[in-house]
Amino acid sequence: MTAPLLEVEGLRTHFLTRAGVAKAVDGVSFVLQPGEILGLVGESGSGKSVTGFSLIGLVDPPGRIVGGSIRFAGQELVGLPAEQMRALRGRRIAMVFQDPQATLNPVLTIGTQMALALQAHDRVSDRAAAERAATMLTRVGIPDAAARLGNYPHEFSGGMRQRVAIAMALLNGPELIIADEPTTALDVSIQAQILHEMKALAAESGTALIWISHDLATVSALAHRVLVMYAGRIVESGPVGAVLRAPLHPYTRGLLDSLPAMTEPGRRLRQIPGTAPSLLALPPGCPFAPRCPRADAACTAPPPRVDHAERRALCHHPLEAAA
């Protein structure tokens, strides 16, 4: 077994607000191998995006990493000086965001924006930067790339814009790309294309991918392993096939059942009752207990870790795993 690319151990990112401490990420641990695709799934506010931003060192105040460790290729990232972290961003760990309309600067040509991303890390002449940018745009499937470097973001369609953003992320050949719901803002037909191409590009360049999404369907099509987050914690993790076939945690079961494809046509869509708890006032013990069909008195105590082959869950009453 090769050395892992990323080892996250007990990561805790809290937001110190006037109303109290919001524990957005509270004790997250996982390991990522080089070239692996990891799906990070959860509802809004489960802490999945904050986890992503913690990895790349871009948690906005009042948020702060208050504990834990992030080891990237053997290097500790928590507490790394700002300039070293900056040098790492974009070059070795890149990120793609949800809405390409908002991420690309509307008043700069994409050629300029890509050149800035290159020149942030290397002394690259404008001409060489344009060549590298055009090559990368061609790789992500933008036709006539060299001519389009002079275009502004609004001259591209939504799907093309996201390809530009992906090309920018790939530009410096990173070892890890964190993709924060990059297909959510796109048409369904474009989603499938982007998904397919991301998978191909990651495989081709050996880049590891953390795919953050609320959508189990996209994750199942893409990822090798999946982490399910709830209220700042990973409640279940394991190989994507096994987890989706027979989840251990009732929350994962609930997420799966609420997928429209799992419901017979004509029936009401199923949903998980209640809403995600406020991070400022988490219930004691298992945070999912108030919404959980299997909850009982035991659930007011912190849930134990359940190991089942390669899979793990945090639950007092795990579902039976199919053999």
Partner: peptide, 17 residues
């Protein structure tokens, strides 16, 4: 506060740039 600036930071641009 915009995603444009956040994305530029994620690409490793310095704050001055």
């Amino acid at each position: 506060l915009t995603d444009t600036v956040k994305f530029a930071r994620a690409a490793g641009l310095s704050d001055l740039t």
